[in-house]
Amino acid sequence: MDALVWIAVGSLFAWLWLLLGQGFFWRTDVRLPAREAPAEWPFVCVVVPARDEAGVLPESLPSLLAQDYPGRAEVFLVDDGSSDGTGELALELARRHGGLPLTVGSPGEPPAGWTGKLWAVRHGIGLARARGPEYLLLTDADIAHEPGSLRELVAAARTGGFDLVSLMARLRVESVGERLVVPAFVYFFAQLYPFRRIAVDGSRTAAAAGGCVLLRADAAERARIPDAIRHAVIDDVALAKAVKRGGGRIWLGLADRVESVRPYPRLRDLWRMVSRSAYAQLRHSPTLLAGTVAGLALVYLVPPVALLAGLVTGVDRAAAAGGLAWALMAATYLPMLRYYRQSPWLAPLLPVTAFLYLLMTVDSAVQHYRGRGAAWKGRTYARPDTALDEG
């Protein structure tokens, strides 16, 4: 019983530290910073890597072509070996909707040492650089932008003097699995990379959201993007670290005008999304995996277990510590649920979601040691490497 009390108290102290000492990660008011219209709007090239995206392009691509941007802008969609007619559909959508000029290119299969997406991004950036843009907007094929999105991103970058401005697109939340997993996904991401710390000069915290990254072209060259991160499965975080290490100023926050249209109707779809990169996040380290499993258990699973066990056995101190830790957990999750317009009654279920994430992380390690590594869109990377290339 003494052990139960001490474990419950340890979990409670962990939550007190997370509440106050982890950059107020649970707050959802980090949105695009103050911005003013520049005297002259810079030239922007939008790069969209796309592999087998015919299902989502009709919702996403027209939103890019229809951007209400006062300056010059062009869109480069890179068809990364699609088998569903993605490139042809993109050209048809451009003919049908008009708007910004669209160029469709294809880089061929990636060489050894490159992930498919980053090889496509490299090709797209190469096409864009021939035009001489000041900024690059790297955005995924499933991301829809409201008409003023590009204008606001550029204004925020110019006003704040940022080399990289990234928005965590609002993900789709409609199915039961999406309601249970998606808000927690963003919550956990913010816990690992508190948004408030990212923009602080001198802070080592660096992250971006790959679905929407506005990047100064000269900062990309200094950081050798994407060559320096060509191995990265978690490419958005690696990109942000490379830019910050190169002296660039970066900013990341939640989006109001940028949304993902990709559906995850079944839990196994969400499982695959998380497990494909979870072990890469841990640098394929068994030690970090063990620590992560223990940490998830202490922080998310102990509180409800301690409360219930304490009530059953009459150990009031364990029940009190577990109940208070569970209450703090639910309270910190409520802002994210409100951001995603979900019921507050999902907040007490966060331990269930955390247990699912624990299983997904273990499954990611199992797949890695079976030689399957990170698999996505028909490609498998046996040993993805999230470390930046120092060479």
Rank of each mutant, 00 (worst) to 15 (best):
Y264F: 15
K241P: 05
D236W: 09
R158P: 00
D236Q: 06
L239D: 03
R230M: 07
R222K: 15
L239V: 06
A220Y: 07
G248F: 07
R196K: 02
E221I: 01
K241H: 15
K244W: 05
S149D: 13
C212W: 00
R268T: 12
T205S: 08
R230T: 03
D269S: 01
F195V: 00
Q191R: 15
A240L: 06
L270I: 15
L138Q: 06
F185A: 05
V213G: 01
W271Q: 10
L254T: 04
A238S: 14
G248Q: 05
L239K: 01
A157I: 03
L215N: 02
R257E: 11
S175C: 09
L150Y: 07
A223L: 04
R196T: 00
D218L: 08
A155H: 07
D269N: 08
I198G: 01
P194N: 09
W251K: 06
D236M: 05
A220F: 09
G211W: 04
Y135S: 09
R268W: 14
P265C: 03
A141K: 01
L267E: 00
H145K: 07
V237T: 14
R224F: 05
V258W: 06
R204K: 14
G246Q: 12
R266N: 06
A238V: 06
V181N: 06
P263E: 04
R266E: 12
D236C: 06
A238R: 09
V213C: 14
A190S: 10
R224A: 12
L214S: 04
R158W: 10
L270R: 07
G253Y: 02
F185H: 08
D236A: 09
G248C: 03
A232Y: 08
F189V: 04
G202R: 12
A217F: 01
G247V: 08
V243H: 07
D227V: 12
G160K: 06
L192K: 13
A156M: 11
I143D: 02
D163R: 05
D201M: 05
G248R: 02
I143L: 09
A155F: 09
